[in-house]
């Protein structure tokens, strides 16, 4: 039986309302992209001094390069029609200027700053940690869910109880530990602590419960080793759980900030968020440049989100309350 559907008008009102809220909540993100492409220097013939639309008041809500490009394009065509080659060349030049200025900060970012390296570092660390977590935590989750051995509950409870402790508590000792291990200012200082996160063990254990014992039993009957059973039977069955865990791990590592700013010194080892903070702190970065950096950092997560949306939902509801 279905709930009595709302009539059209009400639905429309709700839709409209939600659209307004959604626009408000997406506005900052839009602003990042809009500003990163904003025209930062423009001077037409009738203007006394060049203007920047990046910090103009009132703020420009879309990249001004777009309308101005078309304006010059139209005028260039008209000039061509009228046979005024000089005028046409001027407008063509302006079009080129608009394009190169609009995308200029991205070029700048990769050429003059270490953004390319930071981007690579972020990707590399996120991928290594994600793969590592998936393997390590599914192994641990599997035996904790499916094997009976002495100490199992004790181990599980110890691991899980640390989930309640906020990360800041261990910030300082972890830092000293990383220093003592000689890992300061290396990517290992990020990767190893990230690989120790316990949430995945919990999630995978939850997930492994739903794997029927009969299947494992059957594999054992066929003489498969523990490892083989895990690799060929368990992992494929746990795929949706792995997808959810993988995405959340990737997202967290990609966005992580507090720990990397503490342990990384060398500029070329920075991850994107740390690099962005340095850009903001250095006095010489324009806002357009900052927003271009922000856009570069935001794009991969947005792509991951769009591609794997359903796993996000799955991961959230799996880890949370089940009715």
């Amino acid at each position: 039986m279905k709930k009595k559907p709302l009539d059209r008008l009400n639905k429309l009102i709700i839709f409209g309302l939600l659209t307004v809220f959604a626009v408000v909540s997406l506005l900052p993100l839009y602003w990042v992209f809009s500003t990163s492409l904003q025209l930062s220097s423009y001077q037409s013939q009738d203007m006394e001094r060049p203007v920047s639309y990046v910090d103009s008041n009132p703020p420009k809500m879309y990249p001004m390069g777009i309308p101005l490009y078309f304006k010059h394009w139209g005028e260039a065509r008209e000039a061509a029609k009228a046979g005024d080659t000089e005028e046409e060349a001027y407008h063509r030049d302006m079009m080129d200027h608009i394009v190169s200025n609009s995308f200029g900060s991205f070029k700048n970012l990769f050429k003059k700053h270490d953004v390319g390296k930071w981007f690579f570092n972020s990707i590399y660390i996120a991928v290594v940690v994600t793969i590592g977590i998936l393997l390590i935590d599914s192994m641990a989750g599997y035996v904790l869910a499916k094997k009976k051995f002495p100490g199992r509950n004790l181990i599980f409870w110890i691991i899980i109880s640390t989930m309640m402790i906020p990360g800041q508590v261990t910030l300082v000792p972890l830092f000293i530990m990383v220093g003592n291990l000689g890992l300061m200012d290396t990517h290992w200082a990020l990767i190893l602590p990230d690989l120790s996160m316990v949430f995945g063990v919990f999630l995978m254990r939850q997930f492994m419960y739903s794997i029927p014992d009969e299947l494992l039993e059957a594999a054992r009957m066929d003489g498969a080793s523990e490892w083989r059973t895990f690799w060929t039977v368990v992992l494929p069955l746990a795929r949706p759980g792995l997808a959810a865990l993988g995405i959340f791990t990737f997202m967290n590592v990609w966005n992580s900030f507090l720990w990397p700013i503490i342990v990384l010194n060398t500029a070329e080892l920075y991850t994107l968020p740390v690099g962005l903070k340095t850009l903001q702190d250095a006095n010489l970065a324009s806002f357009k440049l900052l927003m271009s950096g922000a856009a570069v950092a935001a794009i991969p997560m947005i792509i991951v989100f769009i591609l794997f949306q359903r796993y996000f939902v799955k991961g959230l509801t799996l880890g949370g309350v089940k009715e």
Binding site: F175, I176, G179, M184, D185, N265
Partner: peptide, 11 residues
């Protein structure tokens, strides 16, 4: 900040 942190971490 970085040097201070490195000193504290004996690195």
């Amino acid at each position: 900040d970085k040097l201070g942190v490195a000193i504290a971490g004996k690195a």
